[in-house]
Design a protein around this nucleic acid. Sequence first.
DNA 1: GGCGATATAAATGTCAGACATTTAAAGGTC
DNA 2: GACCTTTAAATGTCTGACATTTATATCGCC
Lengths: 249, 249
Amino acid sequence: MKSASEPKPDSKPQDLSAQIAQAIRDAIVEGRMIVDERLPSEAELSEQFGVSRSTVREALKRLAAQSLIRTQRGAFGGAFVNKLSYEDAYSQHITTSTLLLSMNAVSFETACEARYALERACAPLACERRTPDHLATMRAEIHRQSQPGLSDESFCASDVALHRALVDAAGNPVLSYQLAGAVEAMQPLMNMITFTARSREEIVGLHTELADALEGETPVLAEAALHKLEAYTLTLGQDVMAARARKSS
Amino acid sequence: MKSASEPKPDSKPQDLSAQIAQAIRDAIVEGRMIVDERLPSEAELSEQFGVSRSTVREALKRLAAQSLIRTQRGAFGGAFVNKLSYEDAYSQHITTSTLLLSMNAVSFETACEARYALERACAPLACERRTPDHLATMRAEIHRQSQPGLSDESFCASDVALHRALVDAAGNPVLSYQLAGAVEAMQPLMNMITFTARSREEIVGLHTELADALEGETPVLAEAALHKLEAYTLTLGQDVMAARARKSS
DNA sequence: GGCGATATAAATGTCAGACATTTAAAGGTC
DNA sequence: GACCTTTAAATGTCTGACATTTATATCGCC
């Protein structure tokens, strides 16, 4: 793997707590410590590394922030190598993706393209494996989206739920994990768009096409629906941008 | 357990340092603090939150571990909201994905399926946008892979580099970020496979098909090559599994 | 006046020790 | 044997001190 011998000569000597965290992280990632194994106590670690207990604690908190360890108080407590759950990984991935998008001025076009490309990737699998449950969820969300009184926020949330159902229908947890970030991180960008009655109607129509394609197990139609959805979402976004540009100029 | 009447099984009240970290994290994610803005000093934070400086420091270390803040020593130093770079996001994503796969006993089949589904997602874009540079990289890696003396590790690394070039050719950084985890996290699983001369030849052939498809801008052929590659990788993996089962029984 | 060396101050990094709290296990009582 | 109490081993928190880093201000010299 990479690390220590980076070509970058600038590398500042890190804090002790960062170094210790890295040492333990390596041990976990490389499998030298297994899930649920107990780390030495803070006192023992501070002796092993020749630092104070506070420094060790800061290192452990870094690892805890990445869900690499969990701590338990009391006798026979301590820090344990944590089994990284899909749930933990999801939420970290979503936080990171959301920040990445918002802090790097990713254009609506780029994010949209990535999102729908990824969703099309799971369309064939979803057609093959979708259960009645998945179809029911999608139909329910579509029904929700066609109700007139729905707020923009709720419409967006329902949109995410529908797409989430599509992803889950592919029946591959690794795929679901990878896509969760892409879809959910888009929501802040989606929330910029104000949906008119007209545009909602169009979207609901395309969602229905998508659900029909899954039900009929026709991947080509599912991909086509996603292509149309991407194109339409893009025009909506560009309209909003154009309107803003006009207003501000 | 006293009562089930709690509306939310609030599980456990978190540590103070975790609460403080969450409060600051929320402020950053919700945009109440912007990039490069300076946080109050540790002393000020400890007064604001009514805790000791060590507790504040543990909270800050948690945030630093997620690359949400960076710290600078010296006068007018302090903690600053960090602009999350693609690089930081990559490495976090890869670490998380690798652990997720290794700790949750994800099958080779599932991981393989996810990986190639994602790669096929960027095939059409890559056909459209690949530069001569991308093609050159792919050809160079293919040439490397066909050299007889190459170690298994190097072969795998070259495989990753080739697929990385494919992903980058799509010219969408968000897509690259999302896929980096999937492809690189697979490497430990790929390293299980020992490549015979025969299997390498087959893989190099399929890689060439893929490069040809990109060069000819024929997305259908690119997807076909990836499908064949997935199928072949899968059989290789299953052979290894079967051989192990025979040996251990 | 300008410039280089020095002092200063503000902040993080580290340490040491104490006390509080939690928790499981050992021991004692009926 | 069931229930209560004690105990010990951990983490969680606080306090105060000192070390180190670094931008800025000051001073002395030309």
